[in-house]
Each structure stands twice: as structure tokens, then as C-alpha cells.
Computed example of a mutant assay.
Amino acid sequence: MRAERGSEPRLVATDLDGTLVRSDGTVSPYTQAVLTALDERGVPVVFVTGRPLRWAEDVFEHVGGHGLAVISNGALVWDVARREPVLTRTIEPAAGIEVCELIRSAVFGSAFAVETLSGISLEHGFRERYPVPSGTRRGHLAEIFAGPALKLLARHEELGYQEFWDRAVAAIGDRAVVTWSSTSSLLEISAAGVTKATTLALLCEERGIDPHQVIAFGDMPNDIAMLAWAGTSYAMADAHPTVADTADHVAPGNDEDGVARVLASVFGLAIAPVVE
């Protein structure tokens, strides 16, 4: 339903994979048109993603002139136009190594990777599912954790993701934030207190935008905190059940341009869906 005049959101926050981006990795022409219309109105669209910077850059052209992106589950705020960081919320090596070793002690067979602004480094036993840049470093944990990290990745080749998550959280307590957005047993670990929600809140506070003026979209557990924080929230039609339980509303799926369809209705945009 379209919001009443004067009550339209002042900022849009959207996850990417499974939410704004289609299953084939594209952003549809219709979604592009809706985002462009919002940019022309001066409504910022903030991409809030678990993706590392190197993957998020693939869709940066669609955030428009107001573009900011919250990367790596809140560890980085990136100015798209200037191609520079606005804010980093990192894990220091000593704290990160302690977290990894606690998880490894509790869950034998865990392997880790370290995400930084410059890229990813992998333990020898970490089996990546996607291509990594040429020259990506592999080594022992102390070797690859040489400086502040935006995010840690923990993978297990035998446990299911729920059991892995439960055991990891029990092992580290509040030393870090553990979440996930994958269908495999891959955990995403951020510094204590760092989530999509807490970083989005900092970004909005600087701009004088209250939570009730934000509309947010997501589909996986790493979106739950953001959806709970935003004044208006949508889970995608095929979202994880815990996400659907959190959100206020349900949007059509990402392959049906659900985010764009909701935004066109909320903002009264006369943009016809593209027939493909």
C-alpha cells in the first residue's frame, strides 16, 4: 500500500543477494528505473550487504548520485562516488585470532578466512566456493590475520549451518557478532556490536534520519537486525523463516523485482514493469 502523502520514507536500505539482485546476479531494467527515480527525488538508496567490497562494486552503478553502501554486514560504509571509505568498524588481530581459536576448539574442523579492505586471505584448509582474486594469500591464521579485518569467515565441511552457528555462538559469547547468509555452513563474523543495523543507525543519525523514516528489505538472518530496527520492513517472499517472522510485510521475490515493485507503490512512481 502506498504511504500517505508526507509520510514517505526518507531513506531506502536494501540487501542485495536474494533481495534486490536477481538469482542470475543482475539488476533488472525495471529495478534500475525505480532506483533512478528515487535518486532524482533525492531519496538515498543504501545497499546494505554482507558482500565484501570487491563483490559489491559490481552493482554500485545502480545507487545513483546519493550512493552509499554498507559493506560486510556493517563493517564498512563506502562512498560510491568518491570510491573511499566513510567509516570502518574492524576486528583487531588479537581479538579476531582469539575468536577463531575459541570456535576451532569448540568445533573441530573449522577453517577461517579474513576479509580486509585490500581483499581476502585464506587458511590452508578453507575451501572457497567462489573464485578468489589471483594472488590471494593462503597461510596459517596468524599469518593471514596481519591487520584489522572487516569480517571473518568460518567454514565447516561436515556440520549443518544451524549446528555450526549454535556451537560457534556458544563458544565466543559476546566477543563478536556471528551471522550467516549462505545455504552452506559458512559463518560471517563481525566485531562486537557491529551489524547491518548498528552501522545503518550511525549513518542515519548523521543525516538526521530517524528509524521510522527508513524502509528496509532483506531475506536472510544477517538482515534480521536491520529489519527489526527500520520503521518499515519487508521480507522477500522466499526469505528465511526467521526473517519473515521479523519483518512487518512480505514483498514479492527478488526474481519478480519485489523491492522495486514495493518502492514504486510506496513512492507513487508511475513506472511500468518491463516485459522481458
Results as ranks from 00 to 15, higher is better:
residue 253 G to D: 01
residue 47 F to L: 11
residue 140 H to L: 12
residue 120 I to M: 11
residue 162 Q to A: 14
residue 133 P to M: 12
residue 166 D to G: 09
residue 39 D to I: 00
residue 148 P to C: 13
residue 138 R to C: 10
residue 82 R to G: 15
residue 189 I to V: 13
residue 174 D to H: 13
residue 132 V to H: 11
residue 142 A to M: 12
residue 243 V to S: 02
residue 78 W to A: 04
residue 247 A to M: 03
residue 128 E to G: 09
residue 239 A to V: 01
residue 41 R to H: 11
residue 207 R to M: 02
residue 255 D to L: 04
residue 78 W to N: 03
residue 12 V to S: 06
residue 142 A to C: 13
residue 223 D to R: 08
residue 38 L to M: 09
residue 72 S to P: 05
residue 61 E to Y: 11
residue 75 A to Y: 09
residue 154 A to G: 08
residue 28 S to N: 05
residue 165 W to R: 05
residue 109 G to F: 11
residue 56 A to T: 01
residue 190 S to W: 00
residue 46 V to W: 11
residue 258 G to Q: 05
residue 131 P to D: 13
residue 14 T to Q: 08
residue 183 T to S: 11
residue 176 A to K: 11
residue 191 A to I: 10
residue 266 V to N: 04
residue 184 S to D: 07
residue 78 W to D: 01
residue 101 E to A: 10
residue 61 E to H: 14
residue 87 L to A: 08
residue 83 R to H: 11
residue 58 D to P: 06
residue 11 L to I: 10
residue 51 R to I: 03
residue 58 D to N: 13
residue 76 L to H: 14
residue 265 S to I: 03
residue 129 R to A: 05
residue 68 L to A: 06
residue 43 V to Y: 08
residue 247 A to Y: 07
residue 83 R to I: 02
residue 105 S to A: 12
residue 112 F to G: 10
residue 85 P to K: 14
residue 222 N to W: 04
residue 20 L to E: 02
residue 20 L to N: 00
residue 78 W to Q: 03
residue 2 R to F: 03
residue 44 P to N: 13
residue 111 A to T: 12
residue 182 S to Q: 08
residue 136 T to K: 07
residue 137 R to A: 06
residue 97 I to W: 04
residue 196 K to A: 01
residue 117 L to T: 07
residue 247 A to C: 02
residue 256 E to N: 12
residue 163 E to A: 09
residue 58 D to Q: 14
residue 220 M to A: 11
residue 127 R to P: 04
residue 31 T to L: 03
residue 60 F to S: 02
residue 178 V to Y: 08
residue 256 E to G: 05
residue 203 L to Q: 01
residue 255 D to I: 01
residue 7 S to D: 10
residue 222 N to I: 00
residue 213 Q to R: 03
residue 5 R to E: 15
residue 62 H to C: 12
residue 149 A to V: 01
residue 17 D to L: 04
residue 169 V to L: 15
residue 49 T to D: 05
residue 235 A to E: 00
residue 119 G to R: 00
residue 38 L to D: 02
residue 10 R to G: 15
residue 235 A to W: 01
residue 255 D to Y: 08
residue 224 I to A: 13
residue 30 Y to Q: 00
residue 39 D to Q: 10
residue 83 R to T: 03
residue 152 L to R: 09
residue 80 V to E: 15
residue 227 L to R: 07
residue 87 L to P: 02
residue 8 E to S: 09
residue 179 T to Q: 12
residue 52 P to W: 13
residue 85 P to M: 14
residue 40 E to P: 05
residue 250 V to M: 09
residue 37 A to Q: 02
residue 18 G to C: 03
residue 61 E to I: 05
